[in-house]
Amino acid sequence: MELTGIASYLVSFLTFAGVYAVLALGLNMQWGFTGQFNIGIAGFFAVGAYTSAILTTPSSPAYLGGFGMPFLIGLLGAVIASTVLGLVVGLITARLRTDYLAIASIGIAEMVRLFVKNEDWLTNGVRGIAGIDRPLAGIALDSSFAYLVIVALFVAGVYFLVERAYASPWGRVLRAIRENEPATAAAGKSIAGFRLQAFVLGSAIMGLGGGLYAHFFGFLSPEAFMPLYGTFLVWVMLIAGGSGNNRGAILGAIVVWGVWSGTDLLTGLLPSEHATQAAALRVLLIGVLLQVILVLRPEGILPEKPPKLIAKKR
């Protein structure tokens, strides 16, 4: 591979990792901070991606669209749509054990995928939406590198916000709920209320990730939102990086995306008639990686470090 080839591969690699880092930060707010088990990430991711795509693409007879809104409005729409979805799921499950949230969230992700696949008028069904522009399209500045910078800015912004949230009294209540629910309730905190807030915020962040993905990849189809890519990889990233640690979530996104891409290079060496087996082998390896981490180092690469206690004033 030539130098430019390597550079462009690296740019695309880092952009993908950045999108996944946003998803992992969203999951960290739900699982890492609060202990809420969402395995419907793919659903929020898809809702964000499709909302942004529909808002920004030029009109097409095949699906709803033609709003031609700018990039930032598309992202805002993505965030709002996934917030609404998060609110609905959260309201149903906030009072129940987290196992119910897990089951309900996987249900919502499947429903979103079924809907996207079958409602052609809205999403063009399995044929998907193509031609989603990058934000700077038409300007001389437009390049895949410029988009990487934009994604990196968003990752930094989300990181800053969730890090502030983590250290705030609000974040402390979330951790308290995670560690000891009855004691937190006894301290007069509304468990369901805080859970709902964390869940909705996390969903909103995932929607943002979906929007960023849509403008990077330029093409959306229901296949991209199978539980494997949308949900499972994000979970492995957060667990590997260190759940509860925002830096860990970002690091995990880069490392696991690296492993995942690396297995692609490896299985690419196999003859092409084994392509489906190769894909299965990659999933198998990532699945085994998760189990090994869970058994050997459940706290991840960067374990959670609670913020320092504020010194008492004399």
């Binding site: 492995v236 998760l290 189990q291």
Partner: peptide, 8 residues
């Protein structure tokens, strides 16, 4: 994770 391992 086991679900995905078994399926693959």
């Amino acid at each position: 994770g086991m679900a995905l391992i078994l399926r693959s």
